[in-house]
């Protein structure tokens, strides 16, 4: 049935071309612009990531200042581990929340872009680049802020003697972990909803209201 109207004209069906895949550089360009043109909103979202990681990092930085040996030290180490886990949970919820919000409020925009000819994969690419950029930048800033606060406080209360032997390597490891965690959570929060909406029929994406 579906093929009949073509054949009844006695003509082979016209072919539709395939939409071109835009290069990665174009996606990068659009993503960077997208962050910049909604700068205020981007800063608020990044602020959520920043605060979460800053909290986590400030707690972790305490371990850079060892407090000797004995049962007291073990208890303190346990307390710090527990605090770090709690901090991680808080930061997880915080980042998840701000990222989900910032993607959800753009569902309609995703639907519109699909109507204008954007491929699903391109939309996911856009959100991947945007989320990675915001995740990395906000996490680095957050790590540094949290680290700086703890180090400054220790410096004033305990003086230079308090610095552990592995201060520099320890700091570096903590930075890498914090940025890794921050970026990962950002991506986990942003990509699944964005790709779900990108795969929807445009009509459904356009209907979504928040």
């Amino acid at each position: 049935m579906s093929a009949e109207p073509i054949s009844q004209f006695g003509q082979s069906p016209m072919r539709v071309q395939k939409q071109i895949q835009l290069p990665f550089s174009k996606a990068w360009q659009i993503s960077v612009r997208s962050i910049r043109i909604r700068l205020a909103r981007s800063i608020i979202t990044a602020g959520g990531i920043f605060l979460g990681i800053a909290f986590y990092s400030s707690v972790r930085a305490s371990s850079l200042f060892p407090i000797g040996e004995g049962p007291e030290a073990i208890a303190e180490a346990n307390r710090q581990t527990w605090l770090a886990v709690m901090a991680l949970l808080v930061c997880f919820v915080g980042i998840m929340n701000s990222m989900l919000m910032s993607v959800t409020e753009r569902f309609k925009e995703i639907g519109t872009m699909k109507c204008l000819g954007a491929l699903d994969s391109f939309i996911v690419k856009l959100f991947f680049i945007e989320a990675s950029l915001m995740g990395v930048v906000a996490s680095i800033a957050g790590w540094f802020a949290g680290w700086l606060i703890t180090v400054t406080i220790r410096l004033f209360t305990d003086g230079v003697r308090a610095f552990g032997p592995n201060f520099l390597t320890g700091s570096l490891i903590q930075m890498v972990t914090a940025v890794g965690i921050g970026t990962l959570i950002t991506l986990v929060a942003a990509i699944p909803p964005a790709s779900r909406v990108a795969r929807m029929p445009p009509a459904a994406a356009l209907r979504s209201e928040i």
């Binding site: 049935m1 579906s2 109207p5 069906p13 016209m14 539709v16 204008l116």
Partner: peptide
């Protein structure tokens, strides 16, 4: 049922062809 745009059955199009149609046609 089906929709034909310029005699092409839309149900037969893959995602990239459909995107082309939305973009150009």
């Amino acid at each position: 049922g089906s929709v034909f745009i310029n005699d092409v059955d839309m149900a037969q199009l893959d995602a990239r062809e459909l995107a082309y149609l939305r973009c150009h046609t």
